[in-house]
Amino acid sequence: MSDHAEDIKKQVRLTIAIFVALLVLTVVTVAVSKLSMGVTTGIVVALAIATVKGSLVGGFFMHLVWEKRTIYAVLLIAGLFLIPMLGLILWHYYDPINGTVVAPMLPAVTHEQTTESH
């Protein structure tokens, strides 16, 4: 990033464009959620829009598009550790020993029911 005044002006214009895009995308994500889609489609669409918005904030507001190699390296390492944390924990849920059931699959007892039974 250079700090020249002209570049700054250009950057401010770009920032405002991104800002408008973010507002529009927020409206879109709320509007889309009102459509009756399947639960899975809904999740995918909502997260996809969130990812686009997140990339805009990260890429332009946080200058990741123009950033230095060292910072890419740091974020890459974090990403490398984040993926197994998300993935492997979930894998454990879908891969129990035959017949045994991982705890959260037990029937959920709602708060009201337990209090009534006492």
Binding site: L86, P104, M105
Partner: peptide, 27 residues
Amino acid sequence: WIFLASEVMLFGALFSTFVFLRVGADD
């Protein structure tokens, strides 16, 4: 940026908690 990387891990852990509880929940 290194601090933010650690924050990514913090919220990542919370997000994976959310996913784990959600897929395991009845309703």
